[in-house]
Amino acid sequence: MSIQHFRVALIPFFAAFCLPVFAHPETLVKVKDAEDQLGARVGYIELDLNSGKILESFRPEERFPMMSTFKVLLCGAVLSRVDAGQEQLGRRIHYSQNDLVEYSPVTEKHLTDGMTVRELCSAAITMSDNTAANLLLTTIGGPKELTAFLHNMGDHVTRLDRWEPELNEAIPNDERDTTMPAAMATTLRKLLTGELLTLASRQQLIDWMEADKVAGPLLRSALPAGWFIADKSGAGERGSRGIIAALGPDGKPSRIVVIYTTGSQATMDERNRQIAEIGASLIKHW
Rank of each mutant, 00 (worst) to 15 (best):
D99F: 07
M209R: 00
M184P: 00
N152K: 14
S80P: 05
I206R: 10
E108A: 15
S122I: 10
M153P: 01
E237A: 14
R118Q: 15
C121W: 02
G85A: 11
E164T: 01
K53M: 15
M268W: 10
L111N: 06
L219Y: 04
M66L: 13
A266D: 12
T186I: 14
L150E: 00
H94D: 09
L191A: 05
L247D: 03
M115S: 05
S201C: 08
T267K: 12
L196P: 13
P143H: 08
S57P: 02
I278W: 01
Q37D: 12
F58W: 15
I275Y: 06
E169Y: 09
F58P: 00
T179F: 04
R118C: 14
L223C: 10
W227M: 01
A40E: 04
S51P: 02
G142Y: 02
P253I: 10
R189C: 14
N130I: 00
Q265C: 13
P217F: 08
V42Q: 02
L205A: 03
V72T: 09
D36G: 15
A40P: 03
L38K: 05
T267Q: 12
I256T: 03
I229R: 01
P172I: 10
A200R: 15
F70S: 09
L199T: 14
Y95Q: 04
D113E: 13
T179P: 01
L49M: 14
E145L: 10
E108F: 10
H94W: 12
T178V: 04
R238E: 09
L73K: 00
L192H: 05
D212F: 04
I206P: 01
M153K: 07
W227F: 08
A182C: 13
D36V: 15
R91P: 03
D207M: 15
M268P: 08
G90F: 12
A183E: 11
R118P: 05
V106M: 13
R41K: 14
L223W: 03
A215V: 05
T262R: 08
P253Y: 10
V257R: 00
S96K: 13
Q37K: 13
G194Y: 09
G114L: 03
G239N: 06
F70V: 13
E195A: 11
S254H: 12
E102R: 11
D155A: 00
K71T: 02
L28I: 15
R59V: 02
S264G: 12
R59K: 10
A124M: 06
P25L: 11
Q97C: 06
T147N: 11
